[in-house]
Nucleic acid binder design. Structure first.
Lengths: 130, 130
DNA sequence: CTGAATATTCCGGCGACCGTAACATCCGCC
DNA sequence: GGCGGATGTTACGGTCGCCGGAATATTCAG
């Protein structure tokens, strides 16, 4: 079962290779530098145009999972005003995986758009002007 | 609040708006014209470079679901050598959703790559090499 | 003192996908 | 002339990421 090379090297056990959108965006946020959980939620919302509103359960669950997989690590912890802040940072493995997955997204999008254009020759109602 | 318009119009109840990769690729294959299930499996494998090997359960489950959502329809049925062939075709709603999702993928990939580039120039906390 | 924002933890539940087997027909091979 | 493989669909148990919501705790606005 020739696993096609892409999606294997560093992604040890259990790594859901095609990242889902929430996980992908979490890694994307951390690519800019360490962040704590709550900041990730806000930044994901911002750079998805408000489309993706991470739930606490999703975020912290994903962070734990990604830490287990070695894709992120706890950078440091602070206590501000009695509240805990745990900063997570992207590892090199995480950056590699994110880059590979971004490539996958680009490729998939290109394939779909190319085939949609071919389809355009047939009948198609256009209610809105793009 | 401002639910970003994209990802709402035709995607009535239960439509998992961010398409997962198998679903996305199924729609992409059908964008080229009607296909029967088995052909979809092969074509998805081909245009994903062999990375995505659809299981029967995934494929036919997805087709039923997509048909319920009005994103694909049964185009026609043939019996060839006593074996059934059911052809599925993309609806206009399906094409719209696929186009919107391709845009989402492109955008997400761009965001990730841009942030990864920023990361490369600054600090690499994990000295793996270079 | 009530409510919103900050920040994390916990838990039940759902749905897409996986993995595999079954069933049926036709073909190549030995 | 039977065995295995390709074609094509159906069925079902299981896994896992995400959702949805509530709890906890502190600070600041009204």
């Amino acid at each position: 079962m020739n696993l096609p090379a892409i999606y294997r090297p560093p992604y040890a056990r259990g790594v859901t290779t095609p990242l889902q959108e929430p996980t992908f965006l979490i890694l994307a946020v951390l690519a800019d530098g360490p962040r704590h959980g709550y900041a990730v939620i806000q930044e994901v919302a911002a750079l998805s145009g408000g489309r993706v509103q991470l739930r606490p359960g999703t975020l912290y669950g994903a962070l734990d999972r990604l830490a287990d997989q070695g894709l992120v690590t706890v950078d440091r912890e602070e206590v501000v005003d009695g509240r805990l802040r745990r900063y997570y940072g992207l590892t090199d493995d995480g950056a590699d995986l994110l880059a590979a997955d971004a490539e996958r997204l680009t490729s998939n999008a290109a394939v779909a758009l190319s085939r949609l254009r071919r389809r355009g020759s047939a009948a198609r109602p256009r209610p809105s002007q793009a």
